[in-house]
């Protein structure tokens, strides 16, 4: 469904997206996971024809993003990171506007509006002005809008950024429902590990514009080769630990030590024997955080430079 070849975007001094190659299958939920500034949104803007690539290209639904941008735009829907509905209009009016912009026949448009409003549970709020909606409701409205013209591919840029836990659960539920019921190919960017883990069939971890690794969340975690033992101790005899064949990796996480250990439950005794005195020990199955840490050598962090989605919604103009 999507084929990305050597896609690159350079701004004056930085390379925001560095030679990305990727194939995404029909019906897949694919995640682009990475910290803020990794190049996820830039990739999305290029795929949706809003920014021209510096070099390389991509095809979406067999249309080239550079040569056939109009056909690409007809095939896709997108929910942007920032609010993009008009808050002085009602939910219904925003959807009607979208139907016009996509040249939908009148009766089909009205029928789809009913359908998508129902899907995101906004039917009884459809005649309220969007400025009276909560952050989560706005996102749901935009999700509904992105679907109205039945796109083959739906792009979601940080779909739950800045939302409260309950709204996030809601959005996740809708995304899963969509993928199952409509067989839409969904590409989402996120820097939330739990979101990527829960939703994505496959994901690509992106760091500094490059794809670091691609795979299903399950496989990526399994590839680490064991459980994580997190140890707080004065010092660690790293050389001795490295000699143990079941210790796959030792990293520093926030001043403590994280060991990737095969069959951790069985081998914990021996490890503790080597280390000696410890302040605390924790064993857990690996998360995508550990995967990220493993491949990039650092943890994924929320940078403060990017405000939350809901917060930006508050600053939206009242024109």
């Amino acid at each position: 469904m999507i084929n990305i070849e050597n896609l690159t975007k350079k701004f004056e001094k930085i390379t925001a997206v560095d030679n990305i190659n990727l194939q995404i299958k029909e019906g897949e939920i694919f995640g682009l996971l990475g910290p803020n500034g990794a190049g996820k949104t830039t990739t999305l803007l290029m795929l949706t024809t809003l920014k021209p690539p510096t070099s390389g290209t991509a095809t979406i639904n067999n249309f080239d993003i550079i040569k056939q941008p109009d056909m690409v735009r007809k095939s896709i829907g997108i929910v942007f990171q920032d609010p993009s509905s008009d808050e002085i209009l009602t939910g219904y009016e925003n959807l009607k506007l979208h139907g016009w912009l996509y040249d939908m026949p009148d009766d089909l448009r009205e029928q789809r509006i009913i359908e998508v409003l129902d899907l995101v549970d906004l039917t009884n709020r459809k005649d309220d002005l969007v400025k009276k909606y909560s952050g989560g409701m706005r996102r749901r409205l935009e999700l509904a809008r992105g679907l109205m013209h039945h796109p083959k591919v739906l792009f979601l840029d940080e779909p739950t950024l800045g939302l409260d836990p309950q709204s996030r659960e809601y959005i996740w539920k809708y995304i899963e429902k969509l993928s199952k019921e409509k067989n839409i190919t969904i590409i989402l960017t996120t820097h939330y590990m739990d979101e990527a883990d829960k939703l994505c069939d496959r994901l690509a971890i992106i760091d500094s514009g490059k794809i670091v690794v691609i795979g299903s969340p399950k496989k990526l975690k399994k590839d680490l080769g064991g459980d994580i033992i997190r140890i707080k101790a004065e010092k660690l005899n790293i050389d001795a630990l490295k000699k143990l064949t079941y210790v796959k990796n030792i990293t520093n996480c926030d001043g403590e030590f994280c060991l990737t250990v095969e069959d951790a439950n069985l081998n914990l005794q021996e490890i503790l024997g080597i280390i000696g005195k410890v302040d605390s020990v924790e064993i857990r199955t690996p998360t995508l955080d550990d995967v990220f840490l493993h491949y990039t050598g650092r943890g994924i962090r929320e940078s403060s430079s990017e405000g939350g989605w809901a917060e930006k919604a508050m600053h939206m103009r009242s024109k």
Partner: peptide, 21 residues
């Protein structure tokens, strides 16, 4: 000049990404 504000919020992108010239 207000479209500069439209560009800042993403309404402009919603319009630009529609299949319209």
């Amino acid at each position: 000049v207000y479209i500069v504000w439209d560009k800042k919020i993403d309404f402009m992108k919603e319009v630009l990404v529609a299949p319209m010239n």
